[in-house]
Every structure is written in structure tokens, then in C-alpha cells.
Design a protein around this nucleic acid. Structure first.
Length: 115
DNA sequence: GTTTTGACGTAGC
DNA sequence: CGCTACGCCAAAA
């Protein structure tokens, strides 16, 4: 088994985000929880801020409400929304439509039965 | 080492 | 439905 420490906290965040399939979204809290720090949701968002948007699909990460709270960090104002819609994710009023259905739980990345 | 900040989350009003 | 307040945690100053 691999022993992970928070030494590469940001690195884990980036990895998880990179695993998000197209057309799917997840929440900061879910990623934080997956990393074992469910209360570090704020840090997850911060990690994306300092990350390279060109390689990290941060637009697939929204808050718990499915709201595009970080859209204004994409330079423009509708960049994040357009990126999501290009992947088939409909966004209305900065909110992901059918977020519950499109939600991608990082725990699924572990494989079924793992939890 | 202390203070500030932030793309969150929950609770209260 | 929207705002405030608080907590929680990691990085940067």
C-alpha cells in the first residue's frame, strides 16, 4: 500500500482533477474528502488557482451546489461556462444543470467496492 | 512564527 | 432567496 502524506497536497488535487472525465464535474469538497481532508475544500480551490489552467481542467470543478463560483478566474466571464457546455455540461445562471447526475465522485476512481 | 487570503461548506437569520 | 458569520485548512507574505 502506498503511504501518502500531505507533502504533495496540491499534486494530489491536480491528479484527481485530471482524472475527471469529459462531461463530468465534481466538487472541491469531494476532492478534499477523497484526499482525506474533507475540510480542506478551500485549499482545493486555491490549488487550482495557482495551477496551470492549460493542463488542469479546473472548469470541471465546481462547488458543492454545482455553482461555477470560480468562473471569474478563467480570465473572461463565460469561459468556464463555455468549456463545460462544449463537453456537454449545460450551465444555467452559473449553475450546472443536472449536477447531481453529472457529478463524478473521486471515490469511483478507486474502483467499485473500494470505498 | 504570526497574519492574511481564498475557486468551500454549513448554519443561522 | 440572499447575506452574514463561523469553521476549517494550506500557501504566501
Amino acid at each position: 500500500m502506498t503511504i501518502y502524506v500531505q507533502k504533495d497536497f496540491y499534486h494530489f488535487i491536480y491528479e484527481v482533477v485530471l482524472q475527471i472525465p469529459e462531461g463530468r464535474v465534481t466538487s472541491y469538497g469531494a476532492i478534499a474528502n477523497y484526499l482525506g481532508a474533507k475540510r480542506s475544500s478551500r485549499t482545493v480551490g486555491y490549488a487550482l488557482t495557482v495551477s496551470n489552467k492549460g493542463e488542469i481542467p479546473a472548469h470541471r470543478v465546481v462547488n458543492r451546489n454545482g455553482l461555477l463560483t470560480g468562473k471569474h478566474h478563467f480570465g473572461g466571464s463565460d469561459i468556464m461556462r463555455q468549456l463545460l457546455e462544449l463537453e456537454g455540461v449545460k450551465v444555467v445562471k452559473d449553475q450546472v444543470v443536472d449536477f447531481k447526475n453529472l457529478f463524478w465522485d473521486p471515490s469511483q476512481f478507486l474502483g467499485p467496492g473500494q470505498q
